[in-house]
Computed example of a mutant assay.
Amino acid sequence: MNTKTILILLLCCCCIGLPGQSQDIEDFLDRYSGNDAENYLQPFSDAVGSDFNSGWYRSARVDRKGFHLYVGLVAQMAPIPDKQKTFSATTPSYFSPATTTEVSTIMGPPTTTTVQGSNGTSYSFPGGAGVSSLPFAVPQITIGNVWGTDASFRFFAIDFSGDVGKVNVFGWGIRHSISQYLNEFPVHLAVGYYSTRFKLGDDLDATASLISLQASYEKGILEIYGGPGFEFTDMDFSYVPGGSEQRETINLTGENTIRMTVGLALNLGAFVMNVDYNLAKQSSLSAGIGVQIGNKKKTKSATNEISE
């Protein structure tokens, strides 16, 4: 995978490039030893997972029965904190003296860091992409309701020529109403599970998953929503090291585990807009715009009715 591949990967995800870089990504990773290659890539994994686990819902309301359809576009953005832009890397075993220094991650400044060694030698760590956030947008469909349950889907695919291959994003989720079991409860409650898979040819395969407890309260055209969630991300980054013909795979586990979502939706009949903030170790912003059919306002007793 060369720089062009990584450039397209980042363009797909965040409309950015790799300024000032001419080396292959294999050359970048060959500059690290031990866990340093993982640390170099870790912020990218965290941001991708945070994005893909965002924007799945804009209300906790799921009627027990009746047709409901939402079709919209969801945009996410993971701001990269300063602490995710650098890490402490150690020179390889053949370099003397062994030196640990602060260097760029893949999301960090595009600045090469050079350390001086014995007998006039030096060692250079590559810079990063020099970005401040990782945005992404994807169409989303939600359809229900059966026994207080709905399902959501996301899909994005594009086939690049050359070494890049096909970029695939597919996400799905299922959600069940808790409110239907609670008579006269003042807010809507639901629990959901969501999973998204992101593939880039043979080079990258990532899965982000979220379990969320959702709550929302309607007042006129406004709806406040949010709740806690448990999330995890798994990413396999495959590349061919310099001087080798065999692929190596770096497995990355997202550092996010717990998130808290707080959001606001504006319901204008069939038209709905929403925005929320997801607080976590790697936080994210999410916004959506779409149209919906169904889920008409009812009295509380009718909304919470369990029996036919």
Rank of each mutant, 00 (worst) to 15 (best):
L7F: 13
L9S: 09
L11G: 15
C15R: 12
I16L: 12
G17I: 06
G17N: 09
P19E: 09
Y32H: 00
Y32L: 00
G34P: 01
N35D: 12
N35I: 06
D36E: 02
A37K: 00
E38W: 02
F44R: 06
S45R: 03
G49K: 01
N53H: 04
S54G: 11
R58V: 11
S59L: 08
D63W: 03
R64C: 07
L69M: 08
Y70I: 09
G72V: 05
Q76N: 15
M77C: 12
P79H: 03
Q84M: 10
T86I: 05
A89H: 01
A89V: 02
A89D: 00
S93L: 13
T99F: 00
T99L: 05
T100H: 01
T100Q: 05
T100W: 03
T101W: 00
T111I: 11
T111C: 05
V115L: 03
V115F: 01
V115M: 01
Q116V: 14
S118H: 08
N119Q: 12
S124F: 02
F136C: 06
A137L: 07
P139I: 08
Q140N: 09
N145M: 02
D150F: 05
S152K: 05
F155A: 15
F156V: 15
D159G: 11
D159K: 14
D163N: 12
D163R: 07
D163Y: 06
V164P: 01
G165R: 02
F170I: 15
G171V: 07
G173F: 03
G173D: 06
H176A: 09
I178L: 12
Y181R: 07
P186R: 02
Y193N: 07
Y193W: 07
Y194T: 11
T196H: 06
K199I: 13
K199D: 11
D202F: 11
D205L: 05
L210F: 03
S212I: 10
A215K: 04
Y217C: 09
Y217H: 11
K219N: 14
E223L: 07
E223Y: 03
G226A: 02
E231L: 08
T233Q: 05
M235F: 08
F237N: 02
F237I: 06
S238Q: 06
S238V: 06
Y239M: 02
Y239V: 04
G242R: 09
E245C: 08
Q246C: 06
E248W: 04
N251G: 11
T253G: 11
T257K: 11
I258Y: 13
M260P: 07
T261Y: 01
L268H: 06
G269H: 04
F271I: 14
V272W: 04
V272L: 07
M273C: 13
D276Y: 01
N278S: 07
K281S: 12
Q282W: 05
S284Y: 01
S286A: 13
G290V: 03
Q292H: 14
G294K: 04
A302I: 13
A302C: 12
N304C: 14
E305R: 15
I306N: 10
I306M: 14
E308I: 15
